[in-house]
Design a protein around this nucleic acid. Sequence first.
DNA 1: TTGTATGCGTTATCAG
DNA 2: CTGATAACGCATACAA
Lengths: 342, 342
Amino acid sequence: MADSKGRYGKGSVTLVDVAELAGVSLATASKAINGKSQVRAETRAKVLEAARTLSFTPNPFAKALNATRTGTIGMLTSDLDNRFVLPVLLGAEDAFGAGSMSILLCDARDDAIREQHHLKTLLAKRVDGLLVVGRTTNPRPSITDGIPVPVVYVYAPSEDPNDLSLTPDNRQAGRLAVEHLLSRGRRRIALINGEPSYSAAQDRLVGAISALDEAGLSLVGGPGLFGQWSERWGRACVQALVDTGEPFDAILCGSDQIARGALDQLRECGKAVPRDVAVMGFDNWDVLAEDARPPLTSVDMNLQDLGRAAAQKLVLAIDGAQQSELLYGKVRVVPRESTGVL
Amino acid sequence: MADSKGRYGKGSVTLVDVAELAGVSLATASKAINGKSQVRAETRAKVLEAARTLSFTPNPFAKALNATRTGTIGMLTSDLDNRFVLPVLLGAEDAFGAGSMSILLCDARDDAIREQHHLKTLLAKRVDGLLVVGRTTNPRPSITDGIPVPVVYVYAPSEDPNDLSLTPDNRQAGRLAVEHLLSRGRRRIALINGEPSYSAAQDRLVGAISALDEAGLSLVGGPGLFGQWSERWGRACVQALVDTGEPFDAILCGSDQIARGALDQLRECGKAVPRDVAVMGFDNWDVLAEDARPPLTSVDMNLQDLGRAAAQKLVLAIDGAQQSELLYGKVRVVPRESTGVL
DNA sequence: TTGTATGCGTTATCAG
DNA sequence: CTGATAACGCATACAA
């Protein structure tokens, strides 16, 4: 806060002012305010009262000069302009805010040079810890070496297994998706995947196949249907699938966007969803999923929880709890009409 | 940075260490590093060299203790979980980053209590200025009163005309949209609008009508087509429009989502786009617009530029340039196939 | 229980 | 040009 004149700096009220008004010494005022035990209750009350009437706010810089903690953490994002980092950011902000930590935001625009620069800046500002948020779930280079504070990697795990990373469980996502379709009585499932360079695409495929395996089934059209994360790709694949004449009763799509394309094309091909074909996607992007025709079943990656968990881990690490592991965030199926009546 | 042992605090290298190594006094070292003129070039070189070998980084808190500036600004968002604030955030981050200012991020979750709390926190951290980012373009309550630092409002302008606000020019957006359609030879234009409680919806309508007026035209179906920002609403309106039998050759949609719904329904009604009907939306949301069938013409609100401009204004204000006005950010039409061949 | 004195790392003001 | 030295606001060891 500021003084009555609404200014910082010279004009603002300091501990000395509070002490003066309370009629005690600087040291006593400090102890009273910081809840130290060696001060009479009565005195403490006086000080607190004085602090309140002056609307005293301790200068964080003077404080940080002695303390080891600064109460701020650095958030280093690779690409803010990405709808996946937003929920992570949100979750982290939520968790930190609850613990009265502030977050310093830096975005690297997916550029290593900028990342180095921002890293320097954050460390210069003496952040207590670092949260590194990736652009994809592909493992990314570690920055932990030589960094004097704890680092937690979210979304994109670190390549170094000695680091602490949190990433959504894409294998489990693939598995759950298939299990959901199986539970709806589907047996001939095709998978229209996204870009092969994304480990999310690969991992979901692995999960899906293993779930199918256990049921003695395999993917209609084969496991190699990689392409783009776009509606266009979804449409093209459905058309190709129909053209082959191979029967199928479900399409698992690598993303909600792909699923939207698939839905459109199925309609044009005269296939009813979910009667003839069940369709589901990944990400549970509400804007796309809820207004699809019919509303789209999707796997929610629980990104906000992931961000929250990462923040909590970081706080723990700052408090000295050394951890190094790769943690997988829980995911869940959100059923809607596209895979059958509820 | 940290010392060779990679720690902060007691272990880290200070200006004293640098001075010692360089064989000069503390004061001289300080001047040399801060580029003060009263120091021999030779001496300066020595100091700089020493600083480099020790990888000295000035302690920002000690610095801030004397200075009035802290080099950080507070960003107070109303709702991070909103795709419109992201570009604004990005632009601001970009502008601040270029000027070596850091941004402290706080999200109020659209809750006044939380906002007050975060405001307090930010001020306690002695931010040099505040950027308040709204959730919609509806004017929002001012927080400027009693705040000891400059405040700039982005996206949602302040209700107080004495504040400095930046908001996208929605009227101009409506006008440009209509002018674009007119330039494509369309004369019978309908407007499917979003929620009436959004001033964005109202302002765009005003702009559209005035442009039509000047051409001696008026909206097909009347100006009252308010509803939701959803595909569903777009579909419903198109159906209703077709049912009335009233002829139309263009549909201006309040958002890209609405436009997507409109496109879908037009196809089902056997209307070809853009041959029979031109369609355009607002926001230029790439994911929706580029993959639409056909790709959707849309008005880009230039949110990232808006954020950048706001950041620059804030820096100016921090430097003492008092300003108080409501600035409108430029918007632009991004033509795609849905309004005609290019 | 309270007060005094000192240090945290830097910048700024003076002398030299 | 350079170097002591006093702030800056707070916490804390130590003395009373």
